[in-house]
Amino acid sequence: MAEFTPTQLQSKGVTQLQDQAILALQDVSISYSGKAAVSKVSFPIAKHKITSVIGPSGCGKSTLLRALNRMNDFIPNVTTEGKIIYNRQDLYAAEVDPVEVRRNIGMVFQKPNPFPKTIYKNVAWGPGINGRKDSMHELVEKSLKQAALWEEVKDRLDESALSLSGGQQQRLCIARALAMAPDILLMDEPCSALDPISTAHIEDLLYRLKSSYTIVIVTHNMQQASRISDYTAFMEMGDLIEFGKTRQIFTKPHKQRTEEYVTGRFG
């Protein structure tokens, strides 16, 4: 697991993490064609906890999230500086294969994006291309159960994923990510395109997944962050304003800016 000494954290003005860190951001700066989107952000991600990243639109939180499994590689002219340490290894070191990174750090996107294939194939494809051959049926079933979708789709696994509702599609995308058994699951506003009932479904789901997965979730919805997450990072204009335990951030924030945001005075 990541080396992140308390002194290092304190020197960055970041609250000490009481849990074991699985991922550690160290002075991460990201810019698009020279324009800074994230500047010198450092905080750790605790293992088997939910960490939420909140902040107003355009604060760089999605950009930061995509940096954690190198999805920014697909956007032209993005430069990433600083270190993101995972398993004692900087994810941006030259010898690291980004494909390998994404096998271990999965992602669920803002809009449900199932493949235009059957429900079964949506879940089985990822493990399949990564060399898994046997007991695929069991894996598909297990993943769909973990995503609380199994009961709804067990009789129609051969139907197109596009025949599902938006909320079901998003849970399918979660099942698809879980089938890879990722160390970390990144979620980029996974509920923003969903109605409140589907949102509640997914929040329940995240809460249950916590025991076996590490989740980082970017969200616009502060109630959501306060309901489900253990740690919260508040960002504004590309800077990390404050990081700490969720309860502390929402009840006794150290920074005035954080207090103004979480109490809804702006943003």
Binding site: E100, N113, P114, N130
Partner: peptide, 15 residues
């Protein structure tokens, strides 16, 4: 072909 489909595949560790 929507970019989101490619991203979904890449995020599963596809080449």
């Amino acid at each position: 072909v929507p970019m989101t489909i490619r991203h979904a595949a890449f995020a599963l560790g596809a080449t």
